[in-house]
Nucleic acid binder design. Sequence first.
DNA 1: CATGAATGAGGTTTCATTCAT
DNA 2: TATGAATGAAACCTCATTCAT
Lengths: 180, 180, 180, 180
Amino acid sequence: MRADAQRNLARVLAAAEEVLTRDGLTASMRTIAGHAGVGVGTIYRQFPTKEALYQAIVMDRQRRLAEEAQALFTAADPGAALFSFFTRIVEDATVKKVFADALAGTGIDVKAATAGTYDIRGAVETLLTRAQRAGAVREEVGMAELLALLTAACLAAQHQGWDEELRTRTLAVMFHGLRP
Amino acid sequence: MRADAQRNLARVLAAAEEVLTRDGLTASMRTIAGHAGVGVGTIYRQFPTKEALYQAIVMDRQRRLAEEAQALFTAADPGAALFSFFTRIVEDATVKKVFADALAGTGIDVKAATAGTYDIRGAVETLLTRAQRAGAVREEVGMAELLALLTAACLAAQHQGWDEELRTRTLAVMFHGLRP
Amino acid sequence: MRADAQRNLARVLAAAEEVLTRDGLTASMRTIAGHAGVGVGTIYRQFPTKEALYQAIVMDRQRRLAEEAQALFTAADPGAALFSFFTRIVEDATVKKVFADALAGTGIDVKAATAGTYDIRGAVETLLTRAQRAGAVREEVGMAELLALLTAACLAAQHQGWDEELRTRTLAVMFHGLRP
Amino acid sequence: MRADAQRNLARVLAAAEEVLTRDGLTASMRTIAGHAGVGVGTIYRQFPTKEALYQAIVMDRQRRLAEEAQALFTAADPGAALFSFFTRIVEDATVKKVFADALAGTGIDVKAATAGTYDIRGAVETLLTRAQRAGAVREEVGMAELLALLTAACLAAQHQGWDEELRTRTLAVMFHGLRP
DNA sequence: CATGAATGAGGTTTCATTCAT
DNA sequence: TATGAATGAAACCTCATTCAT
């Protein structure tokens, strides 16, 4: 890839993350292009569709989160590891409208593109299993409800603008509910 | 207000609830007017803005929920009363896109108009206080996190289409987290 | 239909005929709307699609031609009647790009909408049959080649801008070819 | 001209003929460049404009046809020679969208560039004169109407997708019209 | 000299809102 | 008063053309 193309791709991704993060899916392509300092055509060269750009942003996010999860697989305290990852995701969602939108599936089906690429779900499952083996989480808690809780927290955090204290207190209740 | 105007107001509200509930904020004014069997101008006579109509629907919902809450104030088991009301709200949200949208603030800020009119917050507070007095909920749980949990559950239930089992299991974890 | 709507519909059709007639399918909706003195939305109210507007223009044309044909069914000289109708259509096409486009099917399939509504084909067939019975046209000439000749003349007349003399001379050769 | 430049010119022309022939003027420069295996810039080095490329294709076609005509100048049967050349051109047009488009002037005015370069007109004139001298074509038929007939047949053949039978029958009528 | 990334005007279409009827 | 036709800004996307690499 040419040097200028690479530079522009980076600028587009940065602008898209910033704008989509702030405004969600309502952000127009022109706004994103404006923030990146490029023409709309430049975005369309890399991403054939608004949806494709959006998915790229979300996938990038998932990749980074999946890496963070991996680092926690070998943590000394499995319970703390799960709760820490959970908190980490919610912290992100608090200020990033895209991810909440993505989790919510508002308008665009993001599952298709992200499925199986970076496996957040698998990462959470590993962390859950380890936490249960360590006795930090009740045996009867399943993946389905854990993910439901996670999604719920992300959506609400984004939209209501949870501050740090509220996030801490609300997650504390959820974590209390997960423990034996 | 003339009789026909009153009838039209009712029809508009009913149609708006049905259509917004099904399609969320993407529903167009023409679609709503069509379902109500009136012209768009008739809607604009009552509601100066799409946002205003939308707020009216949400307020109406809140009014009804507040009434249901009131009926639970004197229930024999205060813990069950709180959990039952909580479940009731989430059940609704599962199939009503508007309320989740409203809670999520997608596109329209609904807080301004609804704040303080019908006091869902007050109702929940009463139920919480009674449940805590009865020892069914931990003392240190505050209103802020209780409402945050409620919002979170509503948003996720709608967006992910929680079925009955998932709803039961997820709320079970939340309720477990609220109990001593 | 309301009076203003009817007036605007007429203006839109007139403008569309003028502009599409001159520029063919490349004419933009904004240009047409500008000529009509209305907003683009006004056109889209009546015609859900650019194609639909285009078809309306073409159908209107076909209707008028079908009427002219009908008047010739009882003409004293069946041979002259056929040739006269043939000439009439080509004259039109000489200055109307739409009809040449329509016959050519450039970009838009107009057959679907116009088929069977106003039966130009049927009219020509009637005129041909009468001319053949009167001995003015050879028996072995079929509808297929007659329509092919007609289409060919229209397309070429439009695009090359046949003047009256060229039209007369060229059609003279065609008519000579049809006669015994 | 450097060897590689010459090779590229040939590839561009071949690709352009193939693609324009198939898709007509709607074909994009990128599609043509892709088929040629070069970048769009390479095309623009040789042809300042899409129109220029297009004209080059059409001119090339005309050159080849002019050569074929030349070969017929000394044919034994001058009438058959004219009709054969006529048929030959129409056959081509039946499957080549460019030439019909070119003749039809869809979007681009091709006359300017092609006029007088390769003298199709002169070739036809020679064939016509010989045919008239041999008594195979009426004396009063002029070049103007002969070319008009030719154009007309090409346009209609392409646009309507004349099959072999229809082409034969329609040209038969035209030829009958030309004969004494 | 070849490449193809970048540009941005322009295309069609939708829809909240206004206002003549 | 109710209607729905009219408005026109704004959305997404394409593509001929230019120019940095």
